[in-house]
């Protein structure tokens, strides 16, 4: 297992380097001179030239990359075009918000989704299975912004049970933070929860038909042991893949929920920066999101190894 993890980590580092190269090149793929865009149409040639020097844009690409990378490693991702402030500051403010909501949504959907999937598989064809499967199908199909608006209207506006919008850090006021997080987290969790439930159900049903499950029954084991020890570990392999994809979607794609609930997270920062042509910020956001995806994939790979010895020794 140790060598397997080391191998995976080394591979990730290679991918990491590729990511930095591609993100760095983003700036140069865009049409036009970055310095000219940053300064706007009123700038004279001398100003542009000065900024080009400051940004090392007059040097060879490789040197620029080295300079950018060494800055990035030290946490300096450049200055925002719109705000004239370090983008690192924005990111350190926004990232924890997104991570807080996303991780809560991920845990919620993983626990409930896998649990519901197992129940469906055990009670296949019974009423409970039909109800959960129907709910999961609805959950996959439902647009989350619509669900969010519905939640704000009913739970927030009409009933007054939950705050309408916004975000508070749990370290400032835990209860307020939690009550504000409930609706966004549920909205984020529902699609992944539904997907995970469906995936767990079908992969459990696939596994319980296998010969080794019949062997387990023939050994006289209890149903609980067969399901949780013999079947689940086998059934989780495709589920973990899906879970990794969900984490990526939760981190990068929470734009809708952040917009609806007015949460200052990464998704909104990215979209606002794109709209404001703040390409330094976009570059930084993409780098951070790519890093998170890389980390998620690494975790998924490591769990494969833990779940399936054939992967570990392969």
């Amino acid at each position: 297992m140790g060598t397997y993890i080391v191998r995976r980590v080394l591979l990730s580092i290679v991918v990491l380097l590729l990511i930095t190269i591609i993100t760095f090149l983003l700036l140069h793929i865009m049409p036009g001179d970055p310095a000219a865009i940053m300064l706007g149409i009123d700038a004279g040639p001398e100003q542009i030239e000065a900024l080009r020097k400051e940004l090392w844009l007059d040097r060879p690409l490789v040197v620029q990359y080295g300079h950018w990378l060494s800055n990035a490693i030290q946490g300096d991702l450049g200055k925002s075009v719109l705000y004239d402030e370090d983008v690192t500051g924005f990111i350190t403010a926004r990232l924890p918000v997104t991570m807080h909501l996303s991780l809560m949504a991920l845990v919620l959907s993983a626990v409930l989704g896998v649990g519901a999937g197992i129940i469906c598989a055990i009670r296949r064809g019974r009423i409970l299975d039909s109800v959960i499967t129907l709910a999961a199908n609805i959950g996959v199909a439902i647009p989350i912004f619509w669900l969010g608006i519905l939640g704000i209207y009913s739970l927030g506006l009409k009933l007054g049970w939950l705050p309408l919008q916004g975000y508070t850090s749990p370290f400032d006021d835990f209860w307020l933070s939690t009550s504000k997080a409930i609706m966004p987290v549920i909205c984020l969790a529902i699609p992944s929860l539904a997907l995970l439930a469906r995936q767990t159900r079908s992969s459990m049903l696939e596994v319980v038909r296998q010969d080794y499950i019949r062997t387990a029954w023939a050994k006289g084991l209890k149903e609980r042991v067969i399901v949780l020890k013999h079947a689940l570990k086998n059934a989780l392999i495709p589920v973990v893949t899906l879970l990794g994809i969900q984490l990526r979607i939760l981190v990068g794609g929470s734009v809708l929920v952040e917009k609806v609930f007015n949460v200052p997270g990464m998704g909104r920062l990215l979209v606002d920066s794109v709209l404001g042509k703040d390409f330094i910020m976009v570059q930084a956001c993409i780098l951070v999101i790519a890093l998170l995806v890389l980390l998620a994939n690494l975790l998924v790979d490591i769990s494969y190894g833990w779940l399936d010895p054939r992967v570990r020794y392969g």
Partner: peptide, 19 residues
Amino acid sequence: RGGKISMIFQEPMTSLNPV
């Protein structure tokens, strides 16, 4: 099952739990 009467199955490749 397994205690008084036990079974050996046809497919050794798939009758043991791979994980």
